[in-house]
Design a protein around this nucleic acid. Structure first.
Length: 361
DNA sequence: AAGTAATGCAACCGCATACAT
DNA sequence: TATGTATGCGGTTGCATTACT
């Protein structure tokens, strides 16, 4: 493509993009360029919105040690599914998570090659020392395995990751197989196809390497009939994840069943049974409020006046939040006059959205 | 204070997928 | 069904800032 601007965004461009989203919602990115509003590709506009302009982002706030550890755990379960992992971190983007992981990878790789004079448990970083092998001493496989076993779980993950990282780039002996799973870590049995589980339950139920993940319950802390000043629904998803410490049995998988519609087949992949998410991302506030509550076993529903808390974390996007605050209202009386290939300036009516939703189920 | 290395992060690219025609 | 388009995602790069020597 020629004629498209690249590089850093100016404040003016941001303002134009924000204005577009305020008017049309976070859609029809290509139309921004085709209308001549910005000399940016639709992809570039979308990326800018998602990563920098979207409301609710944690700008300039580094990942906490707890968050970083959680990223490691989730990466072990999901692999490099950054968008999915980012769902557990409100205000974080997949790019944030990806960058964190990349930084960590480089740090571990460097430390693997270049050790410090001694190994100290009080080293910097989230999980203590990350240097494990002197550069000029290639340990035997047995030595490596004993080291890995000796380390705590996090360091084991690190070590495994290091081995994996070098597997295809150097002659460093490799311990682990092709997966990102650390060695000698048992995987919890799964009761159902992983993709069928709601994101937060995938986290709570998931194959695990730490107590966080091996204590599979969606029951929040402080729910042993004890009053809590903070309702679980108001806890951020990642906190729900971190706080899940009960040894309760694994809850049954949630059934996503809109009123007066057929049940979704249990064999349906998760991505296939959440079509209303697309709907939720779309226009009408009224329509959003009519979306059926998802009943997730073990997760207490909030009051009917606060339907947002009933929605899965995946759906709780900052944009969605702002919809409820009436900060973003679509202008349905703004038809496209410039011949965009998609109805970029003609947002769907409520009837259209309703029909789409019913069709999706 | 200056040079260098390390780090963080914004943004681009290519590919995959969903959807409309 | 085939094709084109829009969007989303993961990998990667390059630059600015910070830390270190």
């Amino acid at each position: 493509m020629e004629g498209f601007k690249k590089g850093p965004w100016s404040k003016e461009e941001d303002a134009i993009l924000l204005d577009w989203v305020a008017t049309h919602g976070p859609h029809y990115w290509s139309c921004i360029q085709s209308k001549g509003l910005l000399m940016r590709t639709g992809k570039s506009c979308r990326l800018r919105w998602v990563n920098k302009l979207r409301p609710g982002l944690k700008k300039g706030r580094k990942f906490s040690p707890e968050e970083e550890e959680m990223v490691v755990q989730l990466q072990a379960d999901f692999g490099n599914k950054w968008a999915r992992i980012a769902e557990f971190f409100p205000g974080r983007t997949d790019n944030d998570v990806k960058n964190l992981w990349s930084t960590r990878k480089k740090r571990l790789a460097r430390n693997y090659r270049s050790p410090l004079p001694s190994i100290s448990k009080s080293g910097t970083g989230v999980h203590g020392p990350e240097q494990v092998v002197p550069p000029n001493e290639t340990p035997t496989e047995d030595q490596q395995q004993s080291e890995a076993i000796a380390f705590d779980h996090q360091e084991t993950i690190d070590l495994a990751y290091i081995h994996q990282s070098f597997a295809d780039t150097s002659a460093t002996p490799v311990l682990t197989g092709p997966t990102s799973k650390p060695p000698n870590i048992k995987t919890a049995p799964s009761l159902a196809p992983f993709d069928n589980v709601m994101p937060h339950q995938q986290c709570l139920n998931g194959a695990s390497v730490t107590p966080v993940l091996t204590l599979p319950t969606s029951k929040p802390p402080n729910t042993n009939n004890e009053p809590s000043s903070v309702p679980f629904d108001s806890v951020m998803p990642h906190q729900q994840y971190l706080h899940a410490t009960s040894t309760s049995p694994v809850p049954t998988l949630p059934t996503i069943k809109p009123p007066d519609t057929k049940s979704v087949p249990s064999s349906a992949p998760f991505d296939d049974v959440m079509p209303h998410q697309k709907f939720l991302n779309c226009a009408s506030v009224t329509a959003v409020l009519t979306v059926p509550t998802l009943n997730v076993p073990g997760i207490k529903s909030g009051p009917s006046s606060a339907p947002f808390n009933n929605v899965t974390p995946q759906i709780q996007s900052p944009f969605f939040d702002r919809l409820f605050e009436n900060e973003l209202v679509y202008n349905e009386s703004d038809p496209c006059l410039l011949g965009c290939s998609r109805p970029c300036c003609a947002p769907p009516t409520f009837d259209d959205l309703t029909a789409d939703m019913l069709k999706s189920f």
